[in-house]
Design a protein around this nucleic acid. Structure first.
Lengths: 220, 220
DNA sequence: AAGCGCATTGGACGATCGTCCGATGCGCGC
DNA sequence: GCGCGCATCGGACGATCGTCCAATGCGCTT
C-alpha cells in the first residue's frame, strides 16, 4: 500500500501523514509540494494506490491536476482534499473521476473516517453534502470535458496549460526544452482531441476547469 | 424613476415586475431578455435609475455584464439578481460595483424588502451572508480587474467577448458588421488597456469573470 | 470654436499560427 | 517481432495575428 500526499502546504502534509499513519500504519507515504513533483513521483512509483490531491496547487489550474492524473493513471485512485468544498466543486470533481472529496475543514475524527473509506475503495463525501451531490445527467457536459481532457498525453497537457496562460509557442518551447516545431505538433494533436480550432478556444476549455480562487472565498 | 429588468427568464421578469410595482408604484419598468437588449434599452433611456441584472444571461459571461454596465453607465445603479448566491460570487459582484445582490431564492417579502433597500440607494445583501461578505483587501485583484475592464468602450467589450469565445478576427468583423481592419484596431487598444500581449491572455482575463454554471449547481 | 474620445478604415509588414507533407527513436502490449 | 502511441524534429506554405504609419466623421465637453 503506497499513498502520495500532494499539497503545497507543508504543515498540512504533516497532519495528513499522521492521520494516514493512524488508520494505515503499514502504508508507505510519499509527499509532493507541487503538481510536477507529484507527477514525477508517480512516474517513478507506478505501484502507488492512492493520491490525496489538493485542489489548489502551483501549476494545477484547479481540476486540471485531477483530469491529468485520471488520464495518465486510471488505475490509481485520487481523492481530492480542499477547503473549497461547495456542492458544485465537489460535483465537478466527482464528474472528473475523483474517488472522494475530503474537506480541509474536517476535524481529525472525520478525516480519519474519510481516509478509511477511501482506502476501502469507497467514495467519501463531506457529510453535509452527502445525498444531494449525485453525479447525474446535469454533469454530462462536465464529463464529456473530462473525457476529452483525459485523452491528452502528459506533455500535451503541459503544453495546453502554458497555452492557457497566454504564452507563445516559442516561449512554451523554451519552457519545456523542446523546439517550437514540437510544440506546434502537440497543438495540432490537442486541437484535434479537444475538438477546437485555435489556441484561444483550447485555453478557454482548460480554464473552465478553474475553481474560484480560495483567496477570495469567505466562510459561508 | 425608471427601472430596467434584465433577465432571460420571462416568468421571473413578471414576478420581478410585480414586486417592483408593489414597492414603487410610480416607477417606469422596462424589460430585457438578453444583455444586448439591455444595452440597447439603456442607450435609448439614459435616465434609467436602476438595473436589476441577472447573473446568467445570454452573451453575458457572468460578471462581464456588470463590468460593462458599470464602465458604460457609472451613474446607474446595478443590483445583481441570481440563484448562484454563494459568498464568493456575492463578494466579486460587490468588487465590481454592484449596488446589491438579491438571491432568487428569496421569498416575496424578502424580495420586496431588498427592492426597497436598493431603491433607497442602500447596499442590500442576502441576510445569510451579511456581515461576512465585506469587500476588503483580499479583493484588490478583483477590483483592479474591474477597473481595467471598465476602461473598455462598449464596442471593445463586445470584441473582447467574441475573442473569448475563440472567434477569428474575420468572424468577429462579420458578427459586428465591420471590417476586419477595425477589429484589429480595437484589439490593439484592448491589449493596451488590459495590459496583455495577445488574444489568448485577453480571453483568459475575461473568462476569469465567469461564474460557475448554474446548471451544475445543486442545493447546498 | 476647439479639444477629446470613440469608431471606422486603409496599406504595409513582420511575427506568429496552424497544417500539409514527411522523418526518427522509444517503450509497451499483443 | 510487430504494431501502436508517444515524443521529437524538418521544410514549406497559407492563414492569421498584431502593429506601424495614416486618415475621416461623429458626439460630447470645455
Amino acid at each position: 500500500m503506497r499513498i502520495l500526499l500532494a499539497d503545497d502546504h507543508p504543515l498540512f502534509r504533516i497532519a495528513l501523514a499522521q492521520a494516514v499513519r493512524a488508520v494505515a500504519p503499514e502504508a508507505t507515504i510519499a509527499e509532493a509540494g507541487t503538481f510536477d513533483d507529484a507527477l514525477a513521483d508517480l512516474a517513478a512509483h507506478a505501484d502507488t494506490d492512492l493520491v490525496l490531491l489538493d485542489l489548489h496547487m502551483p501549476g494545477s489550474h484547479g481540476l486540471m491536476a485531477l483530469a491529468t492524473l485520471r488520464g495518465e493513471y486510471p488505475a490509481i485512485a485520487v481523492a481530492m482534499i480542499s477547503a473549497h468544498d461547495d456542492a458544485s466543486t465537489v460535483r465537478r470533481a466527482l464528474a472528473h473521476g475523483a474517488a472522494g472529496f475530503i474537506s480541509k475543514r474536517s476535524g481529525l475524527d472525520e478525516l480519519q473516517t474519510a481516509l478509511r473509506a477511501v482506502l476501502a475503495a469507497q467514495t467519501w463525501l463531506p457529510p453535509a453534502l452527502r445525498g444531494n451531490v449525485l453525479v447525474g445527467e446535469a454533469d454530462a457536459e462536465e464529463r464529456r470535458l473530462a473525457a476529452r481532457l483525459a485523452a491528452l498525453s502528459p506533455q500535451q497537457m503541459r503544453v495546453l496549460g502554458l497555452v492557457a496562460d497566454g504564452l507563445l509557442n516559442k516561449q512554451i518551447a523554451d519552457r519545456l526544452g523542446v523546439q517550437e516545431r514540437t510544440v506546434k505538433a502537440h497543438l495540432t494533436a490537442i486541437f484535434e482531441r479537444l475538438d477546437v480550432r485555435n489556441r484561444t478556444q483550447a485555453g478557454v476549455l482548460l480554464r473552465s476547469l478553474e475553481v474560484a480562487d480560495p483567496a477570495l472565498r469567505v466562510e459561508g
